[in-house]
């Protein structure tokens, strides 16, 4: 059985798995980007309380493996609170949390490290605060943050694989299930790689386009 045979025979199952993976991403990406940016802005504006909280949470979530957090929220937390939650929601919540604090810390740091001289130049040129933000701060921050944000989202896509371990029927779990019935690991995991390539390539192209369109090499020539 070739990779193509695997893809043809099991395409319905694979596509179902891919749908679940993309559904997870549809929750994780916007939540992480919107709430993360919001959190980063608030954290930069209130460094003592929100800044420390964001840094602390980002540090904790980067130190504890995502799988441990996922398992903890799936097993002990649900036992402690005596409730049963759909694993899809648990996975969405866990990965969204990781993404929100990852993006939030990235944004907080970019704002905190923003070169003040550009703002001073705007002030002495008589620009209003809103013009300084819209014409100077946001464009420079966007260009600074863009590559990191895109990488973070691709990492989050890859992290959705962990959801399979709490029984979310995403594409990796589907591949495992097919493999357990026909045992063709080479073909099946190659096919799985093809699916990830198909999803990640457009994202990487989009990231490269954004980078080319909005960022440039700022090093001194």
């Amino acid at each position: 059985m070739s990779v193509l045979d695997v893809l043809i025979t099991y395409h319905v199952a694979f596509l179902d798995g891919l749908r679940v993976t993309l559904e997870l991403c549809a929750v994780i990406w916007p939540t992480g980007i919107v709430l993360g940016i919001l959190l980063g802005v608030i954290a930069a504006g209130h460094p003592k309380i929100w800044g420390r909280f964001t840094r602390g949470m980002a540090f904790a979530l980067s130190a504890i493996p995502t799988l441990v957090v996922l398992f903890w929220l799936h097993y002990p937390a649900q036992a402690v609170f005596d409730m049963v939650i759909n694993p899809f929601f648990t996975a969405s919540l866990t990965l969204s949390l990781v993404n929100v604090f990852g993006v939030g810390e990235m944004v907080r740091q970019a704002i905190a490290d923003f070169p003040q001289q550009y703002l001073i130049a705007g002030r002495v040129c008589g620009l209003q605060r809103r013009d300084i933000v819209a014409r100077i701060q946001l464009p420079i921050l966007f260009r600074t943050l863009l590559p990191g944000l895109m990488v973070q989202q691709v990492i989050m896509l890859h992290t959705t694989l962990f959801a399979s371990l709490i029984s979310v029927e995403e594409i990796f779990r589907v591949a495992q299930r097919i493999n357990s019935s026909i045992y063709r690991p080479v073909e099946i995991y190659t096919a799985l790689g093809c699916f990830f390539l198909a999803v990640c390539l457009p994202i990487n192209w989009f990231a490269a386009w954004l980078k080319k369109r909005y960022t440039r090499d700022l090093s001194e020539r």
């Binding site: 001289q117 550009y118 001073i120 130049a121 464009p139 420079i140 260009r143 440039r216």
Partner: peptide, 10 residues
Amino acid sequence: VFQQLFLWPH
């Protein structure tokens, strides 16, 4: 106008 100039890089 400052010695470091502060031109906006974008």
